[in-house]
Amino acid sequence: MDASTAAPPATVSTSELFVGFLKIGLSGFGGVMPFARRMIVEQRRWLSELEFLDVLSLSQFLPGPNIVNVSVIIGRRFQGVAGAAAAFAGLLLMPLVVVLALASVYAQFAQFEAVRGACSGVSASASALIAATALKLARPLKTSAWQVVICSIAFVAIALLRVPLLWMLAALCPVSIGIAWWKRA
C-alpha cells in the first residue's frame, strides 16, 4: 500500500512529537522541510500528503520560520499546548546547541587562512542557493503579469532601495491581496 494512503494514527504522544521533531531538526542542512515531509508523511504517517500540504500552506502564510510553524500546528493537532511545546522544543534544541558549539569552535580557528577561506566559499555558494530557491518559487508566478510586477516591486524596495520591511509590507500586501481578490475567478 502506498504510504500516503495509509490511515494516519489516531494520536501521537507528546514524547513521540518531541523525539520526531528532534530528528527533523538535525536532519537537513540549510533548511529541513524536505526531510520533515519525508518523516511525517512517508515514515511515521502522522499526516497524509494532503494534510501535510495544508499544514505547510498555513505555515508559509503566517509569519515565522516555516518549519517552526509546522511543529506548532502538528504538535497542537495531536496534543494541544503540551504537544506544540514539545514539538517546538524538540525541533530547536539540538540545532541551537550544535550551531553555537560550531560558532565557538570557529572563533578559535578563525585565524587560519584555510578556515576563513572555506567559510567564504560556503557563504558564496549558500547565498546563490537561496537565490536559486527564489527563482524556482517564481516560476509559477510567470503566468500572471500582476504577480510579476508585485514580486519585482518587493525585490527592488528591499534589495536595492533598502526600504524597512514593515513599511514595504504595510504598503504592498494590501495592494497585492486587493488585486488577488479582484481577479478571483
Binding site: A128, I130, A134, A154, A180, R184
Partner: peptide, 23 residues
C-alpha cells in the same frame, strides 16, 4: 485564497532580495 495568492509574489520578491543581499 485571495490572501494566499496576494502574499505569494511578495514572499518570492523577499527571498530573491535575500539571495541578492547575501551574494
Amino acid at each position: 485564497i485571495a490572501i494566499q495568492r496576494g502574499l505569494a509574489p511578495v514572499t518570492v520578491g523577499l527571498i530573491l532580495a535575500s539571495g541578492y543581499i547575501l551574494t
